[in-house]
Design a protein around this nucleic acid. Structure first.
Lengths: 150, 150
DNA sequence: TCAAATTTAATTGTGTACAATTTAATTTCC
DNA sequence: GGAAATTAAATTGTACACAATTAAATTTGA
């Protein structure tokens, strides 16, 4: 591939992933709207459903987001009654994020979402797993690179 | 895979693509900063470098973005002297987007970007093409689904 | 021990994203 | 020919995303 070809929009892996990300979010939207969630908020809940509590820092590491994004988002989720934000008494720098009853209960309404989307997309499990692994590899590599250049 | 497994963050293809998209953008950032561009602005220029001119509608179709995103973005690019926005005289509803000299000249400074990133990421050409094709397929499918449900 | 360095969130400012609405121009179709 | 429907951008309002800075707590090291 020469430079001209690489420069073409059509061949930009980055563009395809960027567009994919937004189109998949759009697919989630009608389902998440019913729960009153945005996609990034749903990701926060996925973490809290697994491990009961977290901190802003940990959420940021898991989701690749910083406090500039998380703080206002978590405030909105707190206002919606899904979570509680509380300074850690052990280390006052940290803010602990916990689910409320309401936040915990939402899990049952959400369990159908991943399967619904997998079915809807018509993608086979094999294909799904293969693509997931490839994307994970790419994510890992690019993330390493970004860490290195900081 | 059962529902519990699917619900885990770690297995969310959607999350991986979402995180990938942002991490790749971060990899572009230092290169694009030198040109005074954001990643979406770079995508607009990729199109205009290929086809001289476009419209807001066409840019939206190619980039999967609507006028609510494009209008302010194109205004910023016009203010930066990269493009000109002009109502079509044939159809006054349309706004034609054209490159300025400055916008055209930026192309040479940008040609090195795709190759630099490909090299940097350590991904082989075969891998690159395979992943690109798989992502394209997924994008196509998800896009079709979104169109169907509108 | 205590000042300097580091860590953690919050804040500030800019730039996307996108749903919903509005405005103006063009098409359709009776 | 002209009202109704459609189309294309712009506007409005909300919610991320992220760089850069600030503020407060904790850790480090001479």
């Amino acid at each position: 591939m020469d430079e001209q070809t690489l420069l073409k929009l059509d061949n930009q892996l980055c563009f395809t992933i960027y567009a994919c990300s937004r189109e998949i979010s759009r697919l989630y939207r009608p389902l998440l709207d019913k729960l009153g969630l945005t996609y990034p908020q749903y990701l926060v809940l996925l973490i809290l459903w697994e491990q009961q509590e977290s901190t802003v820092k940990e959420l940021g590491e898991l989701l690749y987001l910083d406090s500039g994004t998380l703080t206002p988002m978590l405030k909105r989720m707190e206002a919606a009654g899904l979570i509680i934000r509380e300074r850690s008494s052990e280390d006052e720098r940290k803010v602990i994020i916990r689910l409320t009853e309401q936040g915990r209960d939402l899990r049952e309404k959400a369990t159908c979402i991943p399967k619904a989307l997998l079915t809807q997309s018509g993608i086979s499990r094999e294909e799904f797993i293969r693509l997931l692994n490839q994307c994970k590899q790419l994510l890992e590599r690019v993330h390493q690179l970004n860490e290195k250049f900081r």
